[in-house]
Write a protein that binds this DNA or RNA. Sequence first.
DNA 1: TCGAAGAGTATTGTATACAATTAAATTGCT
DNA 2: AGCAATTTAATTGTATACAATACTCTTCGA
Lengths: 158, 158
Amino acid sequence: MPKVSPVLLDEQLCFSIYSASKKFNHFYQSALAPFGLTYPQYIAMLVLWEDAPLTVHQLGERLELDSGTLTPLLKRLEKQGWVTRVRSRTDERQVLIHLTETAEAKRDEVYSRIGQCQTLLGMTDNEIDSMMTELVTVKDQLDTVSHQRLIAKEVDKD
Amino acid sequence: MPKVSPVLLDEQLCFSIYSASKKFNHFYQSALAPFGLTYPQYIAMLVLWEDAPLTVHQLGERLELDSGTLTPLLKRLEKQGWVTRVRSRTDERQVLIHLTETAEAKRDEVYSRIGQCQTLLGMTDNEIDSMMTELVTVKDQLDTVSHQRLIAKEVDKD
DNA sequence: TCGAAGAGTATTGTATACAATTAAATTGCT
DNA sequence: AGCAATTTAATTGTATACAATACTCTTCGA
């Protein structure tokens, strides 16, 4: 069976990433349970702690998420008191996401909670670096392939 | 700010995995579009092509998914003609997932479609292997940490 | 300045995930 | 045999993701 084995090999890489992603998700979920934050909510807060206020669009570029995901997520963060959503006065299309004082105040607490968990992975900085480099390579490759497909589709249309 | 930098480093590894997982998902989604399969549906079919029939529980162990995810997924696969769901007669609690003849017939077609896409990643077998090894290490570490937390909780109760 | 094109956000619909609960069937123990 | 504990699926509720669409506001060209 010549076709089977290579399919399975690739499959396992993708599945490993898929599976690791779910495990990380679960890990952060429980680490952040005291704050009631999910992992996607947490990474949104991370970006905002660095650069708030940001528009939904700007936040989406950093997180690679669109308004279909972010709008409900941000509404939940707002309801829980982490952020405020304010329609910009200079451009009524935009919604600016600001941090609340509570969020500012809890920043270091969240950081230190995650800092405690991080060392549990038991990886050196070098190991983490090289792994990230490989993941970026894979992502870039997938982007390239997707682009090629898009172009191919455009050509098909003509 | 001593605490900030290590948090971000770890963050990026997790985010890289999270992001790569989404990109793979998207990649497979478009690669499998001719068959109308999503990535989770596809990996379920992969396991079934190897070992059908399986119970929902057995399938869940292989995919690390529970019935809350699998039941609706399998109902969709059934509606689309890939599988049949049959209550076991020897143990009425179990539901056996069988492949349809259509699914059997399309197996090689799907395999070859994925086989074509796989080489596009441009990675050697060794590179894929080492990456998977690292991912497994991370997953195991996360499992260990989760277990420690569970045990800690148990101890708390006493 | 008016209207078309574009930009930014929200909404709708579909498909995962997963915790928690429910319901039914089986097992094990007395 | 009879009943409690366990097992297995399904269901419910919440939270992502993302394509496709709708809606509003802004910009830009004639």
